[in-house]
Design a protein around this nucleic acid. Structure first.
Lengths: 211, 211
DNA sequence: TCGTCACTTTACCAACTGGTAAAAAAATTC
DNA sequence: GAATTTTTTTACCAGTTGGTAAAGTGACGA
């Protein structure tokens, strides 16, 4: 008979305050480590150290190391996609696109760990995220591509392939988080860098999208 | 007394044909595995299997697993940077830029493993590549930024921050290799995809760079 | 043909790593 | 405040992994 734990799948009562808090501590520590060392490069002991717990305690709150990774990806996915979701079909097309781009740059600056976590996962073939991409991202992506496409046909934006446009926005904005190590070498002088990047990217896409 | 091996640092005679061949086999297998699973996610046994050798044989040719990784990064770096190096200060500015972009797209399509190997390394903070970035990439990058900058001041290209321009070229072109798993989900229909991406990216930067 | 050197294979190991068992300690409930 | 449940800690284990020791095999020149 299996011991009853916080990860039991029997119809649990609502998780206690301690459970919610400790789960959050674990996920936060795991985010830092997984994003900078990858899944395989991170050990349970490292996660435990980083959040001041002991290894078996992690397994008390999550079934396995992989369960931590999956919980992390799932819990961050919605937030990560919220800017795309927020694109308003009734807004001004150019302003909506630039607002989206600005929000993506802001997230790249404010949440580089999240960006790198997803980058790590996708570069390695998205082994634990493919179903999620199919079921969650794909429908949203198709919908927003449709909106952008309509804007283009109405002459409000330069005509181009909407999917590739969105790819290029993702590529450029996330590049600043994902490849920060390289950028820091090539463009020292931390202070102005973020602002320089943000005005560059906004100007670039404004010029590109203005019909 | 240490055994004399192919990795000995005593003044070796030139490596035999077998050595060259086996080193290449190992590096090729390692490229496939490191690029799709990361350094920590790849085991020596996997590499050995992939090239039909036994584990201790790898250590005969390379001091350690890390030495394989470093040798791989070093041996690919020059090739990876050759398109940037090939930018001709005396050529037509717009054509030179577009040629560079086309070559980067081509490499993303033909050498996705290399792209992902570097992506993995840099996302994780470039632990084994930072010195190389400082010593090799940085000077080249600064030089080519200077060229681009001159072109802009001569009115041959749209004025913008040359470093960020190059970042955006890297971001967009390498995105197609590094995030292929995601793109395959969002834009199925393998056949036209590569061509679509290439015309999109070229058109995008042509519009952006044309003064 | 013999000896030397380059290369390969087998057997092995110590450290690490994900995970478990179970006792101890807190917290909560009655 | 005793009983019970939840959470933490200690001790441990089996499988994996990077790497070594050393014997074995083959090639090649004298």
């Amino acid at each position: 008979m299996k011991h009853d734990t916080a990860t039991s799948d029997t119809p649990d009562r609502k998780p206690s305050r301690i459970q919610l808090e400790n789960r959050k501590r674990i996920l936060d520590a795991a985010l830092g480590l997984f994003s900078s060392q990858g899944f395989r490069g991170t050990t349970l002991d490292q996660i435990a150290d980083a959040c001041g717990m002991h290894k078996p305690n992690l397994i008390y709150y999550f079934e396995s190391k992989e369960a931590i990774h999956i919980a992390l990806l799932n819990s961050l996915m919605a937030e990560w996609l919220s800017p795309l979701e927020a694109m308003d079909p009734d807004g001004d097309p150019l302003e909506e696109m630039l607002r989206y781009i600005r929000r993506k740059m802001e997230m790249s600056r404010e949440f580089p760990r999240e960006s790198r976590l997803f980058a790590n996962e996708i570069v390695q073939g998205a082994p634990r995220m493919l179903p999620h991409l199919e079921s969650t991202l794909k429908p949203l992506f198709d919908k927003q591509c449709g909106i952008v496409n309509r804007w283009m046909h109405e002459g409000k934006l330069t005509q181009m392939h909407p999917a590739h446009l969105i790819f290029s926005i993702w590529a450029v904005t996330q590049h600043y988080a994902d490849f920060e190590a390289q950028i820091a070498v090539l463009l020292p002088g931390d202070t102005k860098r973020a602002r320089g990047a943000e005005t560059f990217v906004e100007d670039m896409f404004r010029k590109l999208l203005t019909p």
